[in-house]
């Protein structure tokens, strides 16, 4: 079922690029010898500065990919390279400096008694000098718009604020890659918007690769590229526009398409010509406007 659109990295190639990439090479994983394979022969690359969304049904292997990226798990077959370095028990501390993770439950990722302490925690683990830490705390709280909360107790924050602090804690260590594993799933609509705005700001301002694992289709439309997982295999890779034009097939594998994509489809069924798959309201409105005003 899977197909891979032309891989542009191949032509660019070169050592320099590899240094800022995460690469999965024929990775297979299962939890123990008799267990079914959770991932089967998975290969893909994530470039520097890229925002990649990984989607798939529950149990498709998405979260396992995240855990393999920063050495919480190791594959039985194949290898994972982070900035050209193989992820294995000896290298995980180097790898984890580069790969930051934010998890689903905002209440499970706090250790400090204040926001400030919490952001400091990761840096302390990496043995960073104090002056640099103070500077980094300021910068990273600023990046997520939480400067005013530096002295607050984390448990007094809303879910969205907690997740922003969790992102700040990750940023403080200056990783090259940030993985958000369903980081918005437990938030209310306002919290989700806050996080998405934060993610966009952070990605715009720093040279970071972002990997978001999500069920939220609205989130997916904003990524540069999407990897669709199905039963432990890479089912499709492409831009959000490519992915969401595969409506029926997505539904077959337990996924869905955004409202705007469904509406565009039905508009075509009703006889309108929509020139390209719209990803947001603005794009579909522009299509309709053109049709409406053309004589």
């Amino acid at each position: 079922m899977s197909h891979f659109p032309g891989n542009s990295q191949l032509s660019r190639g070169g050592e320099e690029l590899e240094k800022n990439q995460i690469e999965f090479r024929n990775v297979s994983f299962r939890y123990h010898d008799e267990a079914p394979w959770v991932l089967r022969d998975v290969s893909f690359k994530i470039d520097a500065d890229e925002w990649v969304a990984i989607i798939g049904h529950n149990g498709s292997g998405k979260s396992t990919i995240a855990k393999l990226m920063n050495g919480l798990l190791f594959p039985q077959e194949g290898e994972i390279l982070v900035s050209g370095q193989k992820v294995e028990p000896d290298t995980i501390w180097d790898v984890r400096k580069q790969v930051g993770m934010v998890f689903q439950n905002p209440d499970n990722q706090f250790v400090g008694t204040t926001v400030r302490d919490d952001v400091a925690f990761g840096m302390e683990n990496h043995g960073m000098p104090r002056e640099l830490m103070v500077e980094r705390i300021r910068e990273s709280l600023q990046a997520v718009s939480m400067t005013d909360y530096e002295r607050q107790e984390p448990h007094r924050l809303s879910g969205g604020q907690k997740q922003r602090v969790a992102i700040a804690s990750v940023l403080a260590v200056s990783p090259k890659y940030i993985i958000l594993d369903e980081a918005t799933a437990m938030l209310d609509p306002k919290g989700r918007k806050e996080i998405m705005q934060t993610i966009r700001d952070v990605q715009g301002a720093r040279n970071l690769s972002l990997i978001t694992i999500t069920h939220d289709l609205q989130e997916v439309t904003q990524a540069d590229r999407v990897i669709v997982m199905n039963n432990g295999e890479v089912w499709m890779e492409g831009t959000p526009r490519d992915i969401f034009s595969e409506k029926d097939r997505l539904i077959d594998i337990g996924l869905d398409t955004p409202f705007i994509s469904k509406l565009a489809d039905e508009l075509m069924n009703a006889g309108l010509t929509i020139s390209r798959e719209p990803l947001n309201h603005q794009e579909l409105l522009e299509e309709l406007w053109t049709l409406h005003s053309t004589k």
């Binding site: 469904k262 509406l263 039905e266 508009l267 069924n269 009703a270 006889g271 049709l291």
Partner: peptide, 16 residues
Amino acid sequence: VAELAKDLARMVKGGR
């Protein structure tokens, strides 16, 4: 969605 699309398509074309 299908019903909406039908009405919307008609109205958009109607304008033309």
